[in-house]
Nucleic acid binder design. Sequence first.
DNA 1: TTGTTTATGAAAATCACTTTCACTGACTGG
DNA 2: CCAGTCAGTGAAAGTGATTTTCATAAACAA
Lengths: 143, 143
Amino acid sequence: MKRVKKKLFSDFIAQKGLKSTRQRDTILEFFLASDRHMSIEELYLKVRAKHPNIGYATVYRTLKLFAEAGLAREIQFGDGQTRYEHVNEGEHHDHLVCTRCGTIVEFENPVIEKLQDEVALSHGFLIETHKMELYGLCPKCRK
Amino acid sequence: MKRVKKKLFSDFIAQKGLKSTRQRDTILEFFLASDRHMSIEELYLKVRAKHPNIGYATVYRTLKLFAEAGLAREIQFGDGQTRYEHVNEGEHHDHLVCTRCGTIVEFENPVIEKLQDEVALSHGFLIETHKMELYGLCPKCRK
DNA sequence: TTGTTTATGAAAATCACTTTCACTGACTGG
DNA sequence: CCAGTCAGTGAAAGTGATTTTCATAAACAA
């Protein structure tokens, strides 16, 4: 899986006429090894722990690049932090977010997706993407 | 409808021991007369056109108050602007957002809501709220 | 290896709020 | 009705999270 993503990124870099740099490789490494929902800050801190010379701006710019390359996606959970999640070929999922502890659980539901398409169509919209988040208490926090 | 909302707000004000001011009345007036999805900036500009002496901070604080009073709700469409929409008694709806022109259409779908609850339950979550936005092209922009 | 062009890091600038603070203006008790 | 009290207001300063700038460094082509 990591191999595939790395290939995807180096192809993107090449095809765009960009340069392959040590920093980008490092950041990709850390991104691939990370949780599925990292804020820029979180990834930056992880990277900096091993590579104190890599700056925040570079992490920020590189994450944007990952999104452009199609191996990451920006998400907002309304807490004022932009997060990036991993994108896997043809996969889409939504989120359950615990309002107390911040735990994020992913889920997929084809039936809902289908209904979404129907709703959109009935309003004449052609859907490109969607976002669905359910906020509440996770099992632990319910106690 | 406006009468009801105004009553709601004045009751809230009274019950909280807050004060009724000319500014709050003015801002409520403009909010009630507005589109259903206004950013603070947009409402501020509309208000300022008629009342140049009302400041941004007051609009900002008053909108928060409307949310607390239950007649407005904060929404985020990921464009970095906080918007406020009107809240009507017992109503919940989701949004279709045009990625080209920004048009926002509201919709309700009880079947999806039910499925959301089921999904949440199957993960042990107790849902408080949810957010669902479908992004794509509106009928006009499809042409 | 050099030249050209993109990338990087540190710092400054933005953006969209949020808070502060000195001054106003609502309401309350007389 | 009138002063005192305390919440409300506006302008400006402060915040937090990016986002951009700019001088320097590092790729990669020739």
